[in-house]
């Protein structure tokens, strides 16, 4: 199994207790938008932290672009659940901090110009000199997205980036993330609790069973067309098929998943194709 990003048999346990998740294999191609869905405690965030290099697996390895990762890297940008902006810096200052970390030899003018480009891209033009405390939750998360995009990473890792936002803001930001990421062919690994969000954004939806001892149960290959729009996605004939499949998994199969005959290296790929009426 090899891809642009290859998770190879990772497990994570604390002390001598049971593994939170085990023998996890997943391959991603360049430009993939992958969403992970699972209940709290299945280790989703830990998987993301391992991908980010902020945590290390107890077993197994993660290969990115042919190299095993051994720590955090500018190639893998993280959008944290809490926006985690530096409150003593302005919007521009926060993005510029990332840019100057990526391009250490650049002049201040170069750094600011580059940062400005990404602030414009997330629609925050005019708010460059505000501090995070002056921004709404949605705007803060936009800054976080601009900061992650500005270092032009090979992969973006998002840990429930919209879960703290109200539904309206969440929808707008989903649109923008989708527009930016599909437009630039950005590889994205995203954790979410929201089934609709996963269906709208992801090409592949990865389902994890409950922890401890969580496994990667299956990968749902999103059958919806790539040019889907959030406003009419629910009218697509395949939409409820996919949605019910995932919800069924979360409600019943995630708890009582039968591992006999389940090959963690060859997780079944499911493509719901039957339409519901």
């Amino acid at each position: 199994m090899s891809g642009f990003i290859s998770i190879e048999g990772i497990a994570r346990r604390y002390g001598t207790g049971p593994a939170i998740f085990q023998d996890l294999w997943l391959s991603m191609s360049q430009g993939d938008f992958v969403c992970v869905i699972g209940h709290s405690g299945c280790g989703k965030t830990t998987v993301l932290n391992i991908l980010a290099g902020l945590d290390a697996p107890s077993e197994g390895a993660v290969i990115v672009d042919g190299k095993e990762i051994s720590g955090p890297s500018l190639d893998r940008a993280v959008i944290f659940q809490g926006h985690s902006l530096l409150p003593w810096r302005t919007v521009l200052g926060n993005v510029a901090y990332a840019v100057s970390s990526r391009h250490r030899t650049w002049s201040t003018a170069q750094v600011n110009a580059h940062a400005q480009k990404f602030i414009d891209r997330v629609g925050l033009t005019g708010s460059e000199h505000k501090r995070p405390a002056e921004l709404s939750g949605g705007m803060k998360q936009r800054v976080g997205i601009a900061r992650a995009l500005s270092i032009e990473p090979k992969i973006m890792l998002m840990d429930e980036p919209f879960s703290a936002l109200d539904a309206l803001t969440r929808g707008t930001l989903q649109d923008e993330v989708r527009r930016i990421c599909t437009g630039t062919g950005q590889t994205v690994f995203m954790i979410t609790h929201d089934v609709d969000e996963a269906i709208y954004l992801a090409d592949k939806i990865v389902l994890m069973t409950n922890g401890p001892g969580a496994v990667l149960a299956e990968i749902v290959d999103n059958p919806l067309p790539r040019d889907r729009a959030r406003t009419d996605i629910h009218k697509h004939p395949l939409y409820y098929g996919v949605r019910n499949h995932i919800v069924d998994f979360l409600v019943t199969r995630s708890r009582a998943f039968n591992t006999t005959g389940h090959d963690p290296r060859n997780v079944p790929v499911v493509r719901p194709t039957h339409a519901l009426t």
Binding site: G71, F80, S84, S101, R102
Partner: peptide, 23 residues
């Protein structure tokens, strides 16, 4: 989370001390 921001941006110890921890 602020220290993690510095880690993911590969900020060195010295720069981290002055740009994250000190402020």
């Amino acid at each position: 989370e602020w220290l993690n921001v510095a880690r993911t941006l590969e900020v060195g110890t010295f720069r981290r001390a002055f740009t994250i921890i000190l402020p």
